[in-house]
């Protein structure tokens, strides 16, 4: 069965989605463990604990940068030159993914302090999320469920990345705004949860 890919060669189509997905899922998985791994300094020194998950996601940005170089190679190989708007929108999309990753990572990291098996459950959860994100398929085939899928900030990010870099469709700014909004909501919820439990970390860890 051939999965439709919006008239774009399938490899590069998937890779644009994979770029952001790898960043997000890798950051989520890595950050969920961040308070347990550094339990030493958390119990002995006072510092704002929020630094740990943020630095964990920033490390994944380096991976993103390296993966982008590969994307550049692929675009040259397949002969795609993006418009200026396509290039300009990339940092915006990266910022949205960053916010979503910090929000999700912070939430699971805090949950992991109380329930230590969260990071194992998370790997399965991420597998599930992969199928809910248009990495291996285009958003066009999910038109029926689009109003739910849009809650996933990565949907807007990946669709617009493809639109900007590969020209599969015009850039949908309202979708970008929705993704930005949902990732901010996730971050906000995670921050509230984190703030509530942060003070007891030293006792439970």
């Amino acid at each position: 069965m051939q999965i439709p890919s919006d008239n774009v060669p399938y490899p590069i189509f998937v890779y644009v989605g994979l770029l952001f997905w790898q960043f997000f899922s890798g950051a989520l998985l890595e950050t969920s463990n961040v308070f347990i791994i550094d339990r030493g300094i958390i119990t002995k020194i006072y510092f704002p604990r929020i630094i740990l998950p943020i630095s964990s996601v920033i490390i994944k940005c380096v991976d993103f940068a390296i993966a982008s170089v590969i994307l550049l190679g692929m675009m040259i190989y397949y002969g795609y030159t993006p418009h200026l708007t396509g290039i300009l929108i990339m940092p915006v999309l990266l910022a949205i993914t960053f916010i979503a990753a910090v929000g999700g990572g912070l939430f699971f990291a805090t949950l992991n302090v109380k329930y230590r098996d969260v990071r194992y459950v998370l790997s399965f959860f991420i597998q599930l999320l992969l199928f809910l994100t248009p990495v291996i398929y285009p958003t066009s085939i999910t038109a029926k469920y689009s109003f739910i899928l849009v809650l996933n900030p990565l949907v807007g990010v990946i669709q617009n990345a493809r639109a900007g870099l590969l020209g599969t469709a015009p850039i949908n700014l309202s979708l970008v705004a929705i993704s930005f909004f949902t990732s901010l909501v996730f971050l906000f919820i995670s921050l509230i949860y984190f703030r509530k439990f942060e003070q007891y970390f030293a006792d439970i860890i």
Binding site: G40, I41, I42, K44, I45, Y46, Q199, Y200
Partner: peptide
């Protein structure tokens, strides 16, 4: 006093910067 864990009741007022050595070689 360092602020690592909150007290269940009562309050602490510290005037000035705090440095603490609670364990050798933390950090």
């Amino acid at each position: 006093l360092t602020g690592i864990t909150p007290p269940t009741e009562g309050e602490v007022i510290l005037h000035g910067k705090v440095a603490s050595l609670l364990e050798v070689g933390t950090g």
